[in-house]
Amino acid sequence: MKKSILFVICLFTVLAHSQEIKPIPQVNVSGEGKIKVVPDQVTILATVETKGTNAKEVKKQNDQQMEAVLKLVKNMNLAPADYKTKRVSLNPQYDYEKKKHTYNATQTIEILLRDLSKYDELMEGLVDQGINRIDNVTFQSSKLAQYQSEARKQAMKDAKMKAEDYVSVLGQKVGAGFTITDNSQTYYPQPVYAMKSMSVESDSAAPRQTMAVGEIEIVANVSVSFKLE
């Protein structure tokens, strides 16, 4: 009986205490920071793909083409840390109509080019030495972390300015922030290199421009809750 009475007293105490807790006056806003920069480097994902009926010969041909590609990259004085093999495969394929096997060999290399003035020279050289598939071209900034930090700060300033706009009508002030949620994503422009332009004769008198780098837009998005004073 005493235990039951004690339990009821504790229950009423908790309920009474919970009724005394008042919601915190607050304003919830979002903010955006945006930095536009011209990229100063590019990552290229390129593949040598060979096919044939003899697995050994297909692999040998694929290796020879990739060897020529690596030689080109080394001759362009790229740092060893700026290029690496990403994927290697040799797969059998069966043609049910002709009832025979063929083989498909691929090797993919990832190259980080820090000097964009060498972009055309590298891309043409890759194709000349056996690259027959450009899987991806991503323009980047070597100062990405710095620009991301600037974008985040801009996003927080934007959020606070919005909060101040809202509460100024109510005659209140924005207090301390107590929750911050980062909703940021980074997007890179990925132009497609025109493979056909590489077939133009190398002794052409007119210089060619085969890419439009554009700008990287680094965007930070935040959601912030501020206390109201």
Rank of each mutant, 00 (worst) to 15 (best):
Asn221Trp: 00
Pro80His: 08
Lys59Pro: 06
Ser18Glu: 08
Glu32Cys: 01
Asp128Ser: 12
Thr186Asn: 08
Ile109Asn: 02
Pro25Glu: 06
Phe139Cys: 03
Glu201Arg: 13
Thr50Gly: 09
Lys51Thr: 10
Met1Gln: 13
Lys227His: 11
Val174Asp: 01
Tyr166Met: 12
Asn183Pro: 08
Pro25Gly: 02
Glu121Phe: 07
Glu215His: 12
Val14Tyr: 14
Met66Thr: 06
Gly177Thr: 10
Tyr193Phe: 15
Thr210Met: 15
Tyr83His: 07
Asp63Ala: 06
Ser142Tyr: 02
Met1Asp: 13
Glu110Tyr: 05
Leu45Tyr: 10
Asp95Gln: 07
Gln209Thr: 15
Leu70Thr: 11
Gln190Ala: 07
Ile35Asn: 00
Ile111Pro: 01
Ile134Met: 04
Lys157Pro: 03
Gly175Ser: 08
His101Cys: 08
Leu72Asn: 03
Ala176Leu: 13
Asn54Val: 12
Lys227Val: 08
Ile111Gly: 02
Ala155Leu: 00
Leu15Lys: 06
Gln19Asn: 12
Phe7His: 10
Thr138Asn: 03
Leu45Trp: 07
Asp182Leu: 05
Lys157Tyr: 11
Arg87Gly: 06
Ala46Asn: 00
Val8Lys: 10
Ser142Gln: 05
Gln190Asp: 05
Leu116Trp: 07
Phe178Trp: 11
Leu70Phe: 12
Tyr166Arg: 07
Lys59Phe: 06
Gln140Ser: 10
Phe178Thr: 08
Ala79Phe: 09
Glu124Pro: 03
Lys56Thr: 14
Phe226Tyr: 15
Asp82Ile: 06
Thr102Leu: 10
Lys2Gly: 02
Leu90Ala: 04
Asp95Leu: 05
Val222Leu: 06
Asp115Pro: 01
Tyr166Cys: 01
Val192Ala: 12
Ser141His: 04
Val174Lys: 04
Lys153Arg: 09
Asp40Thr: 01
Thr179Leu: 11
Arg87Leu: 11
Gln93Leu: 11
Asn221Asp: 09
Pro207Gln: 02
Val29Gln: 03
Glu97His: 11
Pro92Tyr: 10
Asp63Arg: 02
Asp115Glu: 07
Asn104Leu: 14
Asn91Glu: 14
Ile216Asn: 01
Lys36Cys: 06
Gly171Cys: 00
Glu97Cys: 04
Arg208Tyr: 08
Val169Gly: 08
Ala206Met: 14
Ser202Tyr: 06
Leu78Ala: 05
Val192Gly: 09
Asp115Val: 07
Gly214Ile: 02
Ser18Gly: 10
Ser199Ala: 15
Met1Ala: 12
Met211Trp: 15
Asn54Met: 04
Asn77Tyr: 14
Lys227Phe: 08
Ile21Tyr: 11
Thr186Trp: 01
Ile24Trp: 08
Ser184Tyr: 01
Glu215Asn: 14
Lys56Ser: 11
Thr43Tyr: 12
Gln140Asp: 11
Glu57Asp: 09
Lys153Pro: 04
Asp82Ser: 11
Tyr188Pro: 05
Arg133Cys: 05
Met211Ser: 12
Thr47Glu: 15
Ala46Gly: 00
His101Leu: 14
Val200Tyr: 07
Lys2Ile: 09
Glu20Ser: 15
Val213Gly: 09
